[in-house]
């Protein structure tokens, strides 16, 4: 079953906000040889009881089913939703991109940033830090362009995602 073509899936996992829960999830992936493309986690409830993890993974469909079932049986997991199967949803990530350069390169960096609606959040005479957000592809593209105009380093959040429409998952 592991030889079927791989698919990228974005999962939303609602968990008890308790010590060790992230280790449980990450450990599950490493122990069973599943992939993690990106993972984000933050407390999302007003009483601080529930955290939401957005996890992007890839694998053949039967492996994705296994991942869902394995996550679901962890005691502190409230709910696992495969947003990719669920239907229309929005995925975003944010990156901070540091670019150094002077002269033409600096002007070009600013111009490209403008096209990507990336905001400079730090500026020195020889560098910028841009804040860019959007789909993973858009962020990738922006970073690829910045390579040509003096990319120094990147920090990115990983994907957060939510279903479209009025309903909660």
């Amino acid at each position: 079953m592991k030889h079927l073509p791989s698919e990228r899936h974005t999962l939303s996992i609602l968990v008890d906000n308790e010590a060790g829960v992230l280790a449980r999830i990450v450990g599950l992936f490493s122990a069973r040889g599943y992939n993690i493309e990106s993972l984000t986690v933050a407390d999302v409830s007003d009483n601080h009881e529930v955290s939401r993890i957005t996890l992007v993974t890839n694998g053949p469909p039967p492996v994705i089913d296994q991942i869902m079932a394995q996550l679901d049986r962890l005691v502190p997991v409230h709910k696992v939703v495969d947003l990719t199967d669920w239907g229309p949803h929005v995925e975003r990530e944010m990156a901070l991109v540091k670019v150094a350069g002077v002269g033409d390169k600096r002007v070009e960096a600013l111009r490209l940033a403008d096209i990507f609606r990336a905001r400079p959040v730090d500026t020195s005479t020889a560098s910028f830090v841009f804040e860019v957000s959007g789909s993973t592809e858009k962020v990738n593209q922006f970073i690829a362009l910045m390579r040509e105009v003096g990319l120094v380093e990147v920090a990115r959040t990983g994907v957060v995602a939510i279903a479209r429409g009025a309903e909660a998952v």
């Binding site: 079953m1 039967p62 089913d65 296994q66 079932a69 394995q70 679901d72 049986r73």
Partner: peptide, 11 residues
């Protein structure tokens, strides 16, 4: 009783 046992190795 354990859903993760389904289709793990055999469909």
């Amino acid at each position: 009783i354990d859903r993760s046992s389904f289709n793990k190795t055999v469909r």
